[in-house]
């Protein structure tokens, strides 16, 4: 199985897990489009919720969204109208990222054995871009960060008038 086909399978798992999460705990309608490879120059976002994983494959699953959408998700989860970008909003985005990655991990473990997930990290700002600096040394062969030079396999989702993306970076370990 090529890395590309593994990534496509995981992207389908991401879509299914995200859909299930939004149907059961966030109660927001969700539509999605086909996944495609996106390089770092095409990414501009306010909020990134990311979880990295290690195992036979290692990588990052990350949610990219606007502050407005993050507020909407947190407000819906807490059933209260949040107006400011508080720590609760970041916590909610971290938990959403964690639940998506966790469910993908369960599916992957059935095929590829034990895997480990990191605690979610949330980065927030305005119009954030990700830049992989040329010739930057690789930190370790078994980890990837959101600053990887590799392209993301990005799945776009639409909820109401808001768009958000779930991205995947993946590499096979010990190669």
């Amino acid at each position: 199985m090529t890395l590309e086909s593994v990534m496509e399978t995981i992207a389908l798992d991401i879509t299914e897990s995200t859909k299930t999460l939004f149907e059961t705990m966030i109660m927001m309608d969700l539509k999605y489009n086909e996944s495609s490879l996106v390089d770092d120059t095409q990414i501009k976002t306010d909020v990134i919720g990311l979880v990295s994983f290690t195992g036979k494959y290692h990588g990052v699953i990350a949610l990219f969204c606007s502050k407005q959408f993050a507020l909407k998700v947190a407000s819906t989860m807490l059933m209260t109208e949040l107006t400011g970008f508080t720590s609760e909003v970041k916590d909610a985005i971290g938990e959403v990222s964690n639940m998506i990655a966790g469910n993908v991990k369960t599916k992957l473990m059935a095929q590829y054995g034990d895997m480990h997930l990191s605690i979610p990290i949330v980065i927030a700002g305005e119009g954030l871009s990700i830049t992989a600096v040329n010739n930057h040394p690789v930190v370790a062969d078994t980890t990837l960060s959101c600053f990887s030079k590799d392209p993301w396999l990005m799945t776009p989702f639409i909820s109401g008038n808001e768009k958000f993306n779930i991205g995947l970076l993946l590499k096979e370990s010990n190669k």
Binding site: M25, A74, M77, L78, M79, D91, A92, E95, N98, I119
Partner: peptide, 12 residues
């Protein structure tokens, strides 16, 4: 749970 949001959701 390390997520305060999740603790609130469970409680509610």
């Amino acid at each position: 749970d390390d997520s305060s949001v999740m603790r609130k959701i469970i409680q509610r």
